[in-house]
Design a protein around this nucleic acid. Sequence first.
RNA 1: GGAGGCUUCGCCUAGUCCGGUCUAUGGCGCCGCACUGCUAAUGCGGUUUGGGUUAAUCCCCAUCCCGGGUUCAAAUCCCGGAGCCUCCGCCA
Length: 431
Amino acid sequence: MIDLRLAREHPDLVKASQRARGADESRVDELLATDAARREAVKRADDLRAEQKAASQAVKKATPEERPAVLDRAKALAAQVKQAEEALRAADSALRDAHLRIPNVVAGDVPPGGEDDAVTMRTVGEVPQYDFPVRDHLEIGEALGAIDMERGAKVAGARFYFLTGPGALLEFALAQLAISRAVAAGFTPVVAPALVRPEAMEGTGFLGEHDEEVYRVERDGLYLVGTSEVALAGMRAGEVLDLSAGPLRYAGWSSCFRREAGSYGKDTRGIIRVHWFDKVEMFSFCAPAEAAAEHLRLLAWEEEFLQALELPYRVVDIAAGDLGTSAARKYDIEAWFPSQSTYRELTSTSDCTTFQARRLGIRYRDADGRNQTAATLNGTLCAVARTIACLLEVHQRADGSVSVPKALRPWLGGAEALTPGMDLAGAVPPA
RNA sequence: GGAGGCUUCGCCUAGUCCGGUCUAUGGCGCCGCACUGCUAAUGCGGUUUGGGUUAAUCCCCAUCCCGGGUUCAAAUCCCGGAGCCUCCGCCA
């Protein structure tokens, strides 16, 4: 939810944001109209309630002779209050609807345009050259005994997979590396629920336009999260945070589930686009004034992680029309996939400013002791499946083995490469 | 899955049986003031969170886990839900 006060005082700003997103500008006027109508309804209901309260007190004090008349008046007022409250409820929900229909106000310097208008900020690392026919991650993974799509489909359907042998070890190694680096950077590590209540889902903005993407567990009224962001944001919902020592940072580990509706035919091969994967997600609560700087810090941690994995990548600044509902600004990191000769999204970090926190009731006490809405930010540290895909491709060698980047070796028993038929006992940290 | 208990303004707590005096008690903590060479102690006052209104104050409304209901009137009565705790069953 955007800041209502901003909409009242600077409707032009919000309208400009809507235009930049390619969204409907008239929604701002709808918001203001419903806001005015609600305030009117509030006043009417409050005034009537005050009157009725007084009338109700009078009933008690009335003499037996006065009583019937006083009681009649109280009853009449009660009926009016009931009506006014119904009108208020309607006005409230009209405002809420209009409010929810407006996505976050985009940051001022976000590139204009849509999906194809992301601006490349920098490209890091050399695009690798191979003097042998490049294989894609699935071919490599199958040869290694690391990925089993066929049996994944047998057990769970399309876009499911097994990570086996070195693939499974790679997942744990990546998890360890990601969590270790996050903790070293001051994050609190968290293992988060993957199944959440609707409020958490709604609060993070995933039940709006992305409703189709979400798995619902009908029987229990719960949802499978598409990212740990949902659980991490929900974790502090309704709380007043102490941000006096700076941002509150969590590194969450959880499985993520996505229906991938509307992506038929896209990335059908391998584990680049799957219904389920595990992820280490960074999440930060901070004062709104600090959000933009914090955003760059999250981006820097993402970059350092990819550098540690020795993966070439580029950083792109996502254009206004391609931002999610909650994001005021978003940077993606796209890593090089040799089999596709292109950069593909590996991580993504969003500054949601106060948009999520307002809906989730997450506040902090400012220097004057006033409660203010906090800002929330999130960023992928490591989406495991896709990272494995990228690692296998970039670090592949002519003989079908895959070299292990140095940073990952401690978590793989020092192994310098993954090779078909390798002895797995040599690829685990000391027991 | 079954049975029972609990949830009150930062924390603890009174009030709930029997509806109005609850504009919610007291303690702790916190803030201000007074007293005092200083500190401590003491005294006095303040201290939930939202919304409406306002230049600001005042004021008004809501808020006793959440949502409904009964009633002129609900912390209090009724129904539904959530969370916590205990016990039984089951389970990794």
